[in-house]
Design a protein around this nucleic acid. Structure first.
Lengths: 227, 227
DNA sequence: CGGGGGCTTGAGGCCACTCAACGATAGTGG
DNA sequence: CCACTATCGTTGAGTGGCCTCAAGCCCCCG
């Protein structure tokens, strides 16, 4: 019933190798790596989507802009995440490095070739797209119907799940990034975090408040009115 | 580069037939039809996803609920649209008929079997999922960052594109549905529509205000701050 | 004809936004 | 190594856009 899913570019590169498909003139398939400095753009909205990316180190934000500068971040990409995978030929978001970030790259065309002959890779592509869709669907509920406190609670729960390191959550993104992800202002995010701190639901570790520890996960979960 | 996409259950049923796969004991693949009365549930969130649906007549809303009743409609499904397609085994939305609605059904398992051997159907599945994802991505921007007037303008533009009939837009859904789609209250939607009417951007045709005509599409588009 | 649902409109309230000030920190250049 | 500056985060005061509550109209439908 369930299909094993390998969301790793290395697997796909291997598949390319096994198929005897060489990238450029090399016989061996090589995953190219590239490092982006903090704050730099990886690709822009509506640019041709020639590559697919996987975060090796660092963190990335994907966002859309309105003409007057209002920004909506659609997703954060953390270590291991694959992003920039589009079905069409153009990127639908702008992607920027939040920290100095190293990514692995694979040519979109190569990936399409693997998918053509490897049903498992093809299934993985669909599965990844579905995961993205599911995330977007849940996020629509958050953006359309949740209060500021519920949004921030949901955000912390998501980040706890995705990047917990020894009990603390080392957030790579700023309050403004969080706000633009949650459809709030940075002040509202800050006030919500202060409130959670007052209530002894979260604790701050470092001075710039980027490391957070969950003191009461149950209470946090109850603040986010899930489904 | 571009692949022809056939988003029609009839095509998939044909593919099943060509593959010699019969549904149940019948030799011929038959697309079952079913009619739901206005307001009835087609499937519920978290129910097993055994079927995929295509709207033949009527209209459908897909939504998520919070425990206290807050509702977020993720999409409206109009004539021709396919919905209920999940990659996992469970539906992620509740689907309800807005009007008396006739749907065509196909077994999910059958569809998976076609996709297994027909690369084109497989591509179509990915393409449909991508379309849904793209819609959700745009909707996140709307829900997170647009004003009430911009949301309503965007809604009218979307509906104009999707169900225009001889210049007028015959909206199947109530103000409450529109509000739950746009992350607003029904009163705010009503006020926005009145405002657009005052500005001579839209006109009402019938008494219950469900038919709308766009008098100035350009002005409407400029009210919705696209990308 | 009576009841109920859908829509509009008005009055008032509240939650998140705006504007502002301030402290702390990290990055920069001398 | 140390000012200097820009950036980030918090907090307070006041505003405003959307929500809440309410009333009334119209139409559909029993």
């Amino acid at each position: 019933m369930f299909v094993r899913v390998t969301t790793d570019l290395a697997y796909w590169a291997n598949s390319l190798g096994e198929l005897g498909i060489a990238s450029n003139s090399n016989r061996k398939i090589r995953l190219n790596e590239f490092t982006y400095k903090k704050g730099t753009e990886i690709y822009g909205e509506n640019e041709p989507a020639d590559y697919v990316y996987q975060v090796k180190a660092g963190a990335v934000r994907s966002y859309k802009l309105l003409s007057d500068g209002r920004r909506q971040i659609g997703a954060f990409h953390l270590v291991g995440d694959i992003f920039g995978l589009e079905n069409g030929t153009e990127h639908r978001f702008t992607a920027e490095a939040i920290l100095n970030t190293t990514v692995r790259l694979i040519k979109r065309r190569s990936l399409e070739m693997v998918a053509e002959s490897d049903a498992m890779v093809s299934r993985n592509l669909l599965s990844m797209t579905t995961d993205n869709l599911q995330h977007a669907e849940n996020h629509m509920l958050l953006l359309g119907r949740k209060t500021s406190l519920e949004r921030v609670a949901a955000f912390l729960i998501e980040m706890d799940r995705r990047l917990k390191a020894a009990g603390v959550i080392p957030l790579p993104m700023s309050r403004r990034d969080i706000a633009d992800y949650l459809g709030l202002t940075l002040e509202t995010v800050s006030r919500a975090l202060s409130r959670l701190h007052e209530l002894d639901i979260i604790g701050f570790v470092d001075r710039n408040q980027r490391q957070i520890v969950l003191l009461n996960r149950g209470q946090l979960a109850s603040l986010d009115q899930q489904t």
